[in-house]
Nucleic acid binder design. Structure first.
Lengths: 332, 332
DNA sequence: TTGAAAGCGCTACCAG
DNA sequence: CTGGTAGCGCTTTCAA
């Protein structure tokens, strides 16, 4: 089941078979037909490793994410995949489960596969890794970490802006006792959100207090974080969640305890994943256009018609505040 | 950045470099050190395509699923990935979005990559595809479709049993006006569930009626299907959903309309994804052990110590009925 | 313990 | 329009 066997069976050279299979160069249609027939009869499937090796190219974009379970990543992935497929590229996904070790392994794997470009959407990025990527020459898009330039494009979401809207809105509603739940990550976007929160609170409502709890990035994690908040001090009047997934978990715990949302406590999410409309109450959140992110990934990574990638820039994405039913006036 | 450059820099042959990098054969430790050093300095990353080509192997398991968005698939994937990584295998995922065309493309890709084994967890399987897979010789696991034997292992979930529990339970609660919402698929597991439902109803509660609506396999799809049900006839007292994801969507639509669950209408899901515990009300559903499925995938596909895969069997997985808060007595 | 060399399957360049 | 052939980068005997 190799090119050579197909060549033999159809009485032509391997070169011609290759031409036919790749639709390149003009091959006499009778010859073409013969080759196609032979390939079909032999159930021939080209060895992609050989093809990539010989061709040097790979037409593959790699994506590494922290947590495929979070719909946020899937939405980005879907948009990217759409572009890739319509331009005849493949996508290779890798999941790190927030582990640096797995991140490194994933990066090595992508480099080893000689991907055309690599998108790294994780929050466990360490400086050393960013440096290695920078030195690797591989066209890369980093999400909310590192600096643009050279082979690196940075996509930055303006979290600060989103957080500001949330805080301003809550402050106007009279909330003073706030809490924040996030997940275990010291670096990257997450901490950015936490820091932005504290900074904003300091400016907008200096009298407000903010208690923090962290747990896993999952429904269970959100629920657990709320337990921690509730058992470690006076009940807050608002729970600001680092993302919608954890917020939905938080909602569950509150409901189980008979704490009403938003009457007793307000809850906010972040990301605006589909689920945020379907939980109850529907979440007040901040929309982040995952589709735009996904499409930007492709645009930056895939070589344009001129043959060059457009990496090296910094793309800023502005979020949008969405008010739904999980927030209300602070309880007296 | 090729093996040869590393060899040159460390003053040994490519063969030796290969040995060092693969930890095979005994290499003098001083030589080994020199090679390692050179590789590091050169930031050498082995070309995986060349490696696979030369080695013939690939230590990669491919998985093709219909809808990565449905947590069900992710759970299966995660279990499989865990096994793969701990046995030094890679996993390659492909998403078909329920399209036969994409399924075929994905299969070709997997074969082209010469994966060790392939798991196909989709519901858009056509006979022709099953046949092609059977003839391909590639160790394959099919989910709820096709027949075991040869290079094919079939994993079958005993849906019928799950559906029976649901119907018996609902019938005992006095429900007579039932409805079923599923997604667009004529073949595979889905239709199995629908047929099982009708068969069971006929036996358990012949007086009951069942209306059907189908839409996409998503939160929106579930909501939409409920709209269809509600606008096309008398309100049912129970809505049986083909899976939890659609059930959560259904719940949302009911809530928006002020229809109480379970007082006005009962709702059941299927799969027991994590979300089914977190929605409100928590879903009565049928648990399907995705982790077991994932682990079985690996066991069947990865060659054992004897070097042979254990494909060819049929594995039956029994579901388990889980009662939560979305079901109650039929409204008079 | 190490080197030389024969491929793995395919592409691409050069002739014809 | 088609064939010959030199690699692509790595693994793997076979000798040394």
């Amino acid at each position: 089941m190799s090119l050579e066997e197909v060549a033999k069976r159809s009485g032509v050279s391997t070169a011609t078979v290759s031409r036919v299979l790749n639709g390149v160069a003009v091959v006499k249609s009778s010859t073409r037909a013969r080759v196609m027939k032979a390939a079909a009869e032999l159930k021939y499937h080209p060895n992609l490793h050989a093809r990539n090796l010989a061709g040097g190219r790979s037409r593959t974009i790699g994506v590494i994410v922290s947590n495929l379970d979070n719909p946020f990543f899937l939405d980005v992935y879907r948009a990217l995949e759409e572009d890739c497929h319509s331009h005849d590229y493949e996508v290779l996904v890798a999941n790190t489960a927030y582990s640096s070790k797995q991140l490194i392994a994933a990066i090595r794997l992508m480099i080893g596969r000689r991907v055309t470009g690599l998108a790294v959407i994780v929050s466990e990025m360490e400086d050393a890794i960013v440096r290695e990527l920078t030195e690797s020459q591989l066209p890369t898009v980093l999400y909310d970490v590192g600096a643009a330039g050279g082979n690196i494009t940075k996509i930055r979401v303006n979290y600060r802006q989103g957080v500001e809207r949330i805080v301003e809105y809550l402050a106007a509603l009279g909330h003073q006792k706030m809490s924040f739940i996030g997940h275990h990550t010291v670096l990257g976007p997450l901490d950015e959100r936490r820091r932005a929160l504290f900074d904003t609170v300091r400016v907008v409502c200096p009298n407000a207090t903010v208690r923090v709890a962290v747990d896993g990035d999952s429904l269970d994690g959100g629920r657990q974080a709320v337990r921690e908040i509730l058992s470690s001090g006076p009940a807050p009047t608002v729970i600001i969640c680092v993302n919608d997934l954890m917020a939905v978990g938080a909602l569950k715990e509150l409901r189980d305890r008979g704490i009403r949302v938003p009457q007793d406590v307000s809850v906010t999410g972040f990301d605006n994943i589909k689920l945020s409309e379907f939980c109850c109450p529907a979440l007040t959140t901040v929309h982040i256009p995952r589709d735009r992110i996904g499409h930007s990934l492709f645009t930056s990574l895939a070589p344009g018609s001129n043959g060059a990638t457009s990496v090296g820039k910094e793309l800023v994405i502005d979020p949008e505040f969405v008010v739904r039913d999980s927030t209300g006036p602070a309880r007296k």
